[in-house]
Design a protein around this nucleic acid. Structure first.
Lengths: 187, 187
DNA sequence: GCTGACATGTAATTCGTTACATGATTAC
DNA sequence: GTAATCATGTAACGAATTACATGTCAGC
């Protein structure tokens, strides 16, 4: 399962709790990964049982106790194996509900589609701004974990997010123009 | 579930069997949707039980009998409701295993990442060619189902696929350049 | 006293994949 | 005869979401 490797990979950078992992997902790599808290907790438990993680309970300064997880040698080995082993079947998760809507909405007329793409365009613009925020946080984050040599790789990852969102924005803007032409001609 | 709406939407264009639906997924909208046969059959059965589809068994000219499904009034109503109702929580399925790999592979060195992106770039180029094939098939398909007025909407859908893949290709090429610089400088 | 952030989990359900199972027809 | 395509399904498993459940601590 890929969530387990996501957890192993992040914990390899720095030990943390399930709660922190969720924050990391939301604050940093939300543009390509997210998870439910309940799933994270369940998976952490399972990885610990398999000996890939160890856990230490930490009495925090505030809030209830934290369970801080660290990766083990076994965990590192398993993660590396997964990373090096390129799957021959490239299994991109290609269920795009929005595009399904776009295709089928045509049947209900151009106006309905126009409105929905307009809403989506705003979302893409928000996403773009969020990515800029993430970009700003990278140097700070790298310093904290002392992994400055990772900078180019994080930048490549982030650039993919930026490139995706920019393409989406351009597509949406062009689609809106197309649709407004259709709407005008129909009058 | 969105698969059910995908099935309703396609069956609204034209009645067909589970087998045909799978072909439609693979030949036309594979760039944003796919499904397992077993899932399709299960879902068709469930939609029929709910009264959103009707089924007629057809003795084909070749092969075993087909079960041809058609959408009912109820099905059309449900589909339209789903299409018009814009979800406030935009729930893009954002689990990109490849990007997870990219981020984490940095830790194993630039070479490993370079190789994996190179493989991926080839896949993107194949995808692009496949999309051009789909593009060519659109006019033929529209004539067959007599839905020429749908053309602009299918084109908008397809353009999104093209825009995505083009952005991916550009990103991959730039990433490879970046990485080769890193590799050279290390020698 | 209440809200919001902190913190962890269980249970039930739904969704999706994989493996298994069957059989007809056509082209080589 | 045998492989490929056509055609439909069941069973078991695994993954992900949703709902439920509990409790601390800080600030207003």
């Amino acid at each position: 399962m890929s969530l387990s490797y996501a957890l192993l990979g992040i914990l390899k950078m720095s030990p943390m709790s399930g709660y922190d992992l969720n924050k990391f997902f939301n604050d940093s790599i939300n543009f390509f990964w997210s998870a439910q808290m309940s799933q994270i907790y369940r998976e952490l438990k399972s990885l610990e049982e398999k000996g890939m993680l160890t856990v230490v309970e930490e009495t925090g300064t505030k809030g209830p106790n934290k369970k801080v997880y660290s990766i083990t040698e076994l965990g590192i080995k398993q993660l590396e194996q997964w990373l090096r082993n390129v799957p021959d079947k490239i299994d991109e998760d290609n269920h795009n509900v929005f595009l399904l809507r776009v295709m089928l909405l045509g049947d209900l007329g151009a106006e309905a589609l126009y409105e929905q793409i307009k809403i989506r365009l705003q979302k893409y613009k928000d996403d773009l701004n969020e990515l800029y925020e993430v970009e700003k946080r990278i140097p700070y984050y790298l310093q904290q974990t002392g992994r400055l040599e990772q900078k180019p790789f994080l930048e490549i990852t982030l650039k993919r997010g930026l490139s995706d969102v920019s393409a989406h924005i351009q597509w949406a803007e062009e689609a809106l123009i197309e649709l407004s032409k259709l709407i005008e001609n129909k009058i």
